[in-house]
């Protein structure tokens, strides 16, 4: 498998890492110091980030991994995640989109007319609620292209912002892609380019982004994950991931689901 690497010209120790490991590391920094991180469906990279952070923090933050028995403390059924979020007891959640636009609107439903779509995605999952009530929602979309990052989404599963009188205790803080990290300015409803991942360029980000965004004159390179972080991901977290994401754990980390993980 091809491995990305930090540029030797940075003068650092050369550390080899996979794109998935870099994105998980970026997400770990975005999560920050919080009490409870929840991870929804189809989110193996955010799950890697949350579990690695918990390993590093000696059990902090709490992590609720949807679909898991071991990494999930809820005892009141699927609704508990949403009840918990509605009360403000979930600090961080992750959402993606078939389309994401420059105002932070996400589309998990379809492209074209809703009643006669050209493309259909799985559906909105919990986005039509969690985007409103989780303080830090981190958007992630591994495919960074004009097909996915669009001027305006076809269907709003959940809006990036709401009118003044709408109950809104949460919303987007950032967007992580295979090429870069954007921060989201909620007041202006606009993304700002924060850093470009090693091996990628600002020109390439502009070329592949369908919406306008702000950027500083000099855009930093996303820092590489540390050797310690990579060790935690590969040795401790990868076997934990295999319970919910066996295909991902095997493809990325070469870990097979152990019978004892059940």
């Amino acid at each position: 498998m091809l491995r990305a690497s930090t540029s030797p010209s940075q003068g650092k120790v050369r550390v080899e890492f996979l794109p998935e490991e870099l994105l998980a590391d970026v997400i770990m920094r975005l999560i920050g110091d919080v009490r409870h991180v929840a991870v929804g469906n189809a989110s193996p990279i955010p799950a890697t980030a949350a579990l690695t952070l918990r390993e590093r923090g000696g059990g902090k933050p709490y992590v609720s991994l949807l679909g898991s028995r071991r990494h999930m403390f809820f005892t009141d059924g699927g609704r508990e995640l949403f009840d918990c979020a509605g009360q403000g007891r979930i600090d961080v959640f992750f959402l993606s989109g078939g389309e994401i636009d420059g105002e932070g609107n996400i589309n998990l439903v379809s492209i074209g007319d809703y009643d006669q779509p050209n493309v259909r995605f799985p559906g909105s999952f919990g986005s039509g609620y969690l985007y409103y009530v989780v303080p830090k929602v981190i958007l992630f979309r591994v495919e960074h292209s004009r097909r996915t990052l669009v001027p305006k989404v076809s269907f709003i599963s959940a809006p990036g912002g709401s009118a003044e009188n709408v109950h809104r205790t949460g919303g987007p803080v950032a967007l992580v892609t295979n090429r870069c990290l954007f921060a989201f300015d909620r007041a202006r409803r606009r993304f700002r380019l924060e850093s470009v991942h090693p091996g990628h360029t600002v020109a390439e980000v502009i070329e592949n982004t369908g919406f306008d965004f702000d950027r500083p004159d000099a855009v930093p390179v996303t820092p590489a994950p540390s050797g310690d972080t990579l060790r935690l991901m590969r040795e401790i977290v990868a076997p934990q991931l295999a319970e919910v994401y066996p295909q991902f754990a095997e493809r990325v980390f070469g870990v097979k689901l152990a019978a004892s993980a059940l």
Binding site: Y114, G128, S162
Partner: peptide
């Protein structure tokens, strides 16, 4: 009642 949804196309449809 449920929070969220307002301003979404889920609600619109």
């Amino acid at each position: 009642p449920l929070r969220g949804l307002i301003g979404s196309d889920i609600l619109a449809h």
